[in-house]
Design a binder for these strands. Structure first.
Lengths: 210, 210
DNA sequence: TGGTCACAGTAACATTGGTTACAGAGCTCT
DNA sequence: AGAGCTCTGTAACCAATGTTACTGTGACCA
């Protein structure tokens, strides 16, 4: 584990902290589609992402959902952070977007490291900042963009986190993430295909030129 | 200053920290409508709110804006926090919603106190958590609610932070906060008046029963 | 090979929200 | 009182998005 840890977090943490993490943390591999966090649950450990991507969703009382953002290598979940520290319930849902490798850190250590390591404090603050900015960026998208622009942004984000130019999703799945209906997505995707920006196939979308 | 500080933050911080704050911080009074933070600016001190309310807005490239949330007594600005610590630019706009009293803490002390005082760390983390939750609540509103419900929520929030059952705003001002048009707001307000929930006057809205 | 199923395409329509235009009402200043 | 201003009410219309319903098609399986 120590090697993977160093690859992803070596530039952030001093050796002593890396050692500590290596001693107490648990390595975890998850497959695409696995639900990592359920809304309303309490969380006992905090994930550092080594590889892969996690998608973070918000769910309303009717079970409607909306994609908030993706987490990637070097990221951690700010919601988990504050749940661990403040002992709040999770307010979000996390699903493995791809197969992913995680390092799970027990809650107890976090408070201790926050006092002890400046690099850890910086990491935690930086994580909060990034997540807050992502949430605000999501607000921008919903408030200021029309659905066609949101869809474009979605496709771009997807290709980025998946690191390939094919999006393997049905129109219905995309509709859930953007909190709209399947028909709307089909309509807009068709338009993008006519414009030559994408190529539509069953269960997948090939990105030509966004 | 020390007395007002103790009234608002005495339950959060130990005496030693309160003393330190008292020594280095600057007391500041602002009038309603004053712009405290401009988007794109760098921030050199962090405000603790003693009284009054601050409204936090997001602005897009065209100057369109959207209300994110209000800050009240006991709150601080998470954006300022991360700007100070991470030396990022401000991504938001802050305007005094009412006359307000603030205590301004110089950036330099924050890092120091984070290492030194557990209560300060908790305060900072708790602030981040609250702001992240407020941002997500805003996402909920935009994504899941229709304009009439958003307007209702807005009126409720307003009466809460202003602590009175009259909202002193024009329809145009409300429209800006909710990022819609004046006509839409007038239309919906009229509907609420017909339903007996509010009473409309020039430049103000009396809340009867939301 | 035919049945079944999930997925995608499309039309027709409903609803919400945004736009334009104009009239009237209240305030302020002279 | 009258001019000029801002604010509000309302109608008519338009655009974007959501809904319903139906069709076709590829994939898979018995």
């Amino acid at each position: 584990m120590i090697q993977e840890l160093k690859n992803s977090y070596g530039h952030l943490f001093e050796n002593e902290l890396l050692e500590e993490i290596n001693n107490v943390a648990m390595f975890k591999e998850v497959s695409e589609g696995i639900e990592l966090i359920k809304p309303g649950s309490y969380i006992k450990s905090m994930p550092l992402i080594i590889s892969g991507a996690i998608k973070i969703l918000r769910e309303d009382h009717d079970g409607d959902e909306l994609l908030l953002y993706f987490l990637e290598r070097g990221d951690t979940c700010a919601m988990t952070l504050s749940c661990c520290i403040g002992h709040h319930k999770s307010e979000i849902k996390a699903i493995a977007e791809t197969d992913a490798k995680l390092i799970m850190i027990p809650v107890g250590k976090m408070e201790e490291w926050t006092a002890k390591y400046k690099s850890w404090r910086n990491f935690v603050f930086e994580s909060y900042h990034k997540r807050l900015m992502e949430a605000i960026e999501t607000i921008d998208s919903i408030a200021f963009l029309k659905m066609d622009e949101r869809l474009l942004k979605y496709l771009k984000d997807k290709t980025k986190v998946n690191n390939e130019n094919v999006v393997n999703n049905t129109h219905q799945e995309i509709a859930y993430d953007l909190h709209t209906s399947r028909v709307v997505i089909s309509r807009l995707l068709k338009k993008l295909e006519v414009e030559g920006k994408i190529k539509l196939n069953r269960n997948s979308i090939e990105i030509i030129n966004l």
